[in-house]
Amino acid sequence: MSVQALDNANYAKNIEYRDPLKNFHGNMLVYVHWEEHLSFCAALAFPLPPAMPFGALVSEVIAPHYAAHPDAARIDWSKVTWMIDGKSVTPDMGASLEANGMKHKSLVRFWTPGLAGFKGSAS
């Protein structure tokens, strides 16, 4: 243990881990970020069922939450490039989040070729 505590022997037993998977009522945390569109100030967080198909993540979660951006209507979803937890991947839209290699607190980043924010400013 790297914490120096008054009672080192008992510190580890008393740790209250705040965000384990079991605290999320059957969901897992998923973070999503649309690259080069910093109008959305940070990646978005969602609690989602691990069995949700990746395609449903795109159509039911990602698309509606980014719809306010003027670029959103012009996204060609077939050309989007994806990165899950630092690895470039081609997700299987029919398979579940879990089957696509995602776990609790996975980060999904996506790029939309040809769309780089308002006047190309990444906003």
Binding site: Y31, H33, S39, A42, A43, L44, A45, F46, H65, A68
Partner: peptide
């Protein structure tokens, strides 16, 4: 007017 309707990653 632009609102972010999801919660952010912290």
């Amino acid at each position: 007017r632009f609102y972010n309707n999801a919660l952010p990653q912290l």
